[in-house]
Amino acid sequence: MRTNPTGRQLRLGAELRKLRERAGLTATEAGQLLGSNQTLISNIEAGRSGVSAERVRALACHYDCADKALVEAISRMTGDRKRGWWEEYREILPAPLLDLAELEHHARSLRDATTARIPGLLQTREYALEIFRQAVTELSPPDIEHRLSFRIKRQAILFHEDEPTPYEAIIHEAALRMKVGGSTVARQQLQHLLDMSDRSHITLRTITFDVGAYPGSGQSFYYACGPVPQLDTIQLDQSHGVAFLDAEAQLHKYRTLFERIEAVALSPEKTRELIHHVMREM
């Protein structure tokens, strides 16, 4: 019995609960269909108990789920029992940060929309260090070092030789012009953006000041695409910590929001021109 299920284990249970509820079955009824009881179903749906791919398929059959792609995607969530690199931080950093790294590891692609900061996956070490130093809750030097090393390791998904994760970021011009860490650190950060934008799997776009108000103005969010749209996830940074959203209406809202922001953003080519311009002005 798990006492601290990971975000991925919780999501697996949540998806099984959604299928059961759509079928109009109670946990007791679902347990009876498996020849078991309500406790087993409740523990699976809460992420406290593991579940095999075969049992997931059996439950989906009992729930009359005809979406084979979704069922197979959920079934595959049961098979990865290896400890990820983020587990070495299990007793060091807040659990939601580890869940974020796990989410990124399994994502098919990532979309980022930011206003006041360069996205974490694109930050240089020096830029990230200054961000952590200015955290609302003052961090101790060891805490800063742990968070810094964790952030740098997260960036590895963009550098895999065989299959780097496709990544698209929309960054407001304000974030480009902020001299985080001073002019030298800021220029190095902008050069890093240019270098990263040369990679074929990375797309950078910018919202300029001239756009004025735009859909979702002032809001930052992170969208992780799963193997099927129903398994997408939104991550938000909030004052009380990291929040993950996965309700169907929420996914539709933020998917649409990103597309609307994208429509008013500069092209990747114009974005590179703007970054060069900002660097010259520093």
Rank of each mutant, 00 (worst) to 15 (best):
G7L: 13
R8Q: 14
R8C: 04
A14P: 00
K18P: 03
K18A: 12
L19I: 04
R22S: 04
R22Y: 03
A30G: 02
G35C: 02
N43D: 07
N43T: 02
G50D: 10
A53K: 01
A53N: 00
E54L: 07
E54I: 08
L59E: 11
A60K: 00
A66E: 15
T78E: 15
Y89F: 15
E91Q: 10
L93Y: 02
A101M: 06
H106R: 14
S109C: 12
S109N: 10
D112Q: 15
A113F: 00
T114V: 15
T115G: 03
G120K: 01
G120L: 10
L121A: 02
T124D: 12
E126Q: 13
E126M: 10
P142F: 05
I144V: 12
H146G: 02
R151K: 10
R151H: 05
A156D: 08
I157N: 04
E161I: 13
D162V: 12
T165I: 15
Y167S: 10
E168Y: 06
A169M: 06
H172F: 03
H172A: 05
A175D: 08
L176F: 07
K179L: 09
V180C: 09
S183E: 08
Q188E: 15
S197M: 07
R199A: 12
D210S: 15
A213R: 14
Y214E: 01
S217W: 14
F221Y: 10
Y222S: 05
Y222C: 06
Y223C: 11
G226S: 09
Q238V: 07
Q238F: 04
S239P: 03
H240N: 09
G241L: 06
L245D: 03
A247L: 13
A249Y: 08
A249T: 11
Q250H: 14
L251G: 10
Y254S: 01
E262T: 04
A263D: 01
A265E: 02
R272F: 05
I275K: 00
H277P: 00
V278E: 08
